[in-house]
Amino acid sequence: MPSDYAYVGLFLIFGVAFVLITFFFARLLRPSRPNPIKNRSYECGETAVGSAWVQYNVSYYIYALIFVIFDVELVFLFPWAAAYRSLGLFAFVEMFIFIMILVFGLAYAWRKGALKWV
């Protein structure tokens, strides 16, 4: 089995080497004449306002928490899907109950306005 992952490793090495070599040659070839306007951070052509290190709105954190919950749910879907063919209707009912319990949570979040964008 690890021999299959040798390809993954090969891709990884090639990917990293490609970026490094490209940057190396780019550095070799390009002229280096920095000035303040060139060094300014690029913000879609607009003048950049303030620093990127600003405090973000707390409501983002609720999205992150909900994402984690459903990410964990997703992990249980994968083995279910892999074994589904040999289990049939019973597995379907099982997963239906599993997801329905979590849908209650999503409905609660929705009802409480946690999904509302501010």
Binding site: F76, F78, P79, W80, A81, A82, A83, L87, F90, A91
Partner: peptide, 9 residues
């Protein structure tokens, strides 16, 4: 994953 799924179900 298949074996895990079967055990879980």
């Amino acid at each position: 994953a298949t074996e895990l799924g079967r055990a879980l179900m």
